[in-house]
Design a protein around this nucleic acid. Structure first.
Length: 571
RNA sequence: GCGCCUGUAGUUCAACGGAUAGAACAUUGGUCUUCGGAACCAAUGACGUGGGUUCGAUUCCUGCCAGGCGCACCA
């Protein structure tokens, strides 16, 4: 959108390429051109160059309606745009494809997330993973990529053994077996059992190691009784996850279980051994010495012959590209695995596997009171608990504001708001930052929050309802009526959207979108507060302001959609 | 000890190597006989520290200090 303007300006300045930016305040202009580079080329001082360029431009300004005024400010050439012309240019180009681009046209990419473990709890750290993954997925789609979401579920390993042990020894953990059988949410209770068992085993250092080893062997060899328990509980987890994923709007095209790729991984380890890439290390484990690459030692197989995470991940990496025929694989995990993935990618590379693989690590979520979440400290925040708590809070709030609403409507609205609050909270910050989660802040509806943005959308919706007119899209709009600075700010912000999407894509950063939604809503509220839409001086002005409002509505809805956040029509 | 990440306002977070370092919360004071007050406006207040590169550094390099994470049989 603005790139059109920039091109025109460059042409008039007789320059090939340059970076534009925004002046610090709108009194200084709407877009600006810094002359540092141009001055360097010419061997002149930037201030002089700016003056010269500004003067050249002024001479031609009359045949360029978009620009009202040009001024040089020190080393900058600042342009003041014409609000009416700008509005027409920007707003008339907004359709359902606004914000999309073709960067990824014809490219196939796989995105793997959240790759949780069965038999474990689903906490808000996992939820952060889902939110980031969801947004990256949407941003890739908006950029023309053919993107395949995939989930790798780890249903194999020590965590499963610990959980099964916990079920078999539930009395030690203070859990009644009846409690397990009758539990409504079986996926959740499995997580609780795992957490309790894990703690108990940690407290009784090594005391039960043999017992666990034995259990693991039985499980791996397919012993009947334990396998039955395993399959039953695995189903509990998986069914629970399926429900959660639907609720979060994750649409996995496929799920790969670790148990599916385990054997293939063991074969790869053998292959690496025979190629002398891997070797037998201390105690008989199979390792790859990566010290040459400053990546320490990677463990591929336990001395017992059992697989570890990397055993299966080697196979999974190849499987992804074979099964889905993609050219890039993106994987999202906690940043504590950053080092691990560097090792994995290096081992794959040494084995002659040169596909593009990207790992995105996101920071932990700390709690505001006790620091790091840990099941031992008992301060793990489960996704489902938080969701219910926020819902309860919002339901109460919504009901008190709309006494005439039906229970169903209250619940529906509160539910959409709940998901919006959750998703927005998780994406306020850059992914790689460790964030501190604060419940009070999450449910506070002021400022940089989802309700603030959804409220803006609901307000515009209310305007639309009151101004019923058929074929409004076809009504002639008189953009010349747009003169206010607030309108200009709003239109400029709208015009940023395509660039915001690209920036988010390039940086795998969903927080940029969240920030954009807030900024746009804030600027709209400013406009709304100063200039009445429905009570404007004349009907023409009503129409054109309403048109602007609807465009804001459309862009906000689209941007929120990238965060997989739905809007409400009333709240 | 080594590696990666992070140090910005009282707090939580922003800022392609460029102009006066932006928001939100909190605090203080205002707007409005409300097109939906879950709104708007204003004030207060910050670049961990020492060097270096540069016309110019919060941003790049580097020393130190502080915090987080990770360093082979856990995932």
């Amino acid at each position: 959108m603005l790139s059109k303007i920039k091109k025109e300006i460059l042409k008039l300045l007789d320059l090939k390429e340059a970076n534009f930016s925004m002046p610090p305040t709108s009194e200084m202009g709407d877009i600006c051109f810094p002359t540092f580079e141009e001055a360097k080329k010419r061997g002149a001082n930037p201030g002089g160059v700016a003056k010269e360029l500004a003067n050249n431009f002024k001479a031609q300004i009359s045949n360029f309606k978009l620009i009202d005024k040009v001024e040089s400010f020190g080393p900058y050439v600042n342009f003041f745009l014409n609000t009416a012309e700008l509005s027409k240019l920007v707003l008339e180009n907004i359709d359902e494809n606004f914000g999309n681009n073709n960067i990824g046209k014809g490219k196939k990419v796989l995105i793997e997330y959240p790759s949780q473990n069965t038999h474990k709890e689903f906490h808000i750290g996992h939820f952060r993973n889902v939110c980031i993954g969801n947004t990256i997925l949407q941003v890739y789609r908006a950029s023309g990529y053919n993107i395949t979401p995939m989930n790798y579920v780890n249903d194999f390993g020590r965590h499963v053994v610990k959980c099964l042990w916990g079920i078999m020894n539930s009395s030690l953990l203070g859990i009644q077996s009846l409690e397990i059988e009758t539990a409504e949410n079986k996926q959740k209770i499995l997580g609780e059992i795992y957490a309790k068992a894990s703690n108990y085993l940690k407290e009784h250092d090594k005391e039960y190691d043999e017992e666990l080893d034995d259990l693991q062997k039985k499980l791996e060899s397919g012993e009947e009784e334990i396998t039955k328990l395993f399959l039953e509980t695995r189903k509990w987890s998986i069914d629970g996850f399926v429900e959660l994923m639907q609720e979060m709007k994750v649409e996995h095209d496929s799920i790969i279980y670790e148990s599916e790729v385990k054997a293939q991984g063991q074969e790869l380890v053998d292959e690496l051994l025979s190629k002398k890439i891997a070797e037998v290390g201390e105690g008989g484990a199979i390792i790859v010495d990566l010290n040459k690459y400053k990546l320490d030692i990677a463990l591929l197989r336990k001395s017992t012959g059992g697989g570890v995470y990397m055993t299966s991940d080697l196979a999974l990496s190849e499987e992804k590209f074979q099964r889905y025929d993609v050219e890039e694989s993106i994987n999202i995990t906690g940043s504590e695995q950053d080092f691990y993935f560097k090792q994995l990618f290096k081992v794959l590379e040494l084995n002659g596997f040169h596909k593009k693989m990207t790992h995105i690590g996101y920071g932990l979520i700390n709690t505001s009171n006790g620091g790091k979440m840990s099941s031992r400290a008992g301060n793990v925040i489960l996704y489902e608990d938080l969701r219910d708590k926020i819902f309860e809070h919002l339901e109460k709030e919504t009901r008190s504001r709309h006494e005439d609403w039906s229970e169903e409507k209250v619940r529906e609205t509160s539910y959409i708001l709940t998901m919006a609050v959750l998703k927005f909270t998780m994406q306020k910050h850059e992914a790689n930052k460790v964030v501190t989660f604060d419940f009070e802040e999450a449910v506070s509806f002021d400022g940089f929050s989802a309700p603030y943005i959804l409220y803006t959308v609901a307000r515009i919706n209310s305007l639309k309802r009151k101004f019923v007119q058929e074929n409004f899209a076809l009504v002639e709009k008189d953009f010349a009526l747009f003169t206010e600075d607030e309108v200009k700010n709003l239109v400029l912000k709208i015009s940023d959207f395509p660039e915001v999407v690209i920036k988010s894509l390039e940086n795998y950063n969903s927080s940029i979108i969240a920030k954009y939604c807030f900024d746009l809503a804030k600027i709209y509220n400013d406009f709304y507060n100063k200039h009445s839409v429905l009570n404007a001086e004349n009907e023409e002005l009503v129409k054109v302001r309403l048109y602007l409002s609807i465009k804001v509505f459309e862009v906000l809805t689209k941007a929120l959609g990238l965060l997989t956040i739905d809007v409400v029509s009333e709240m």
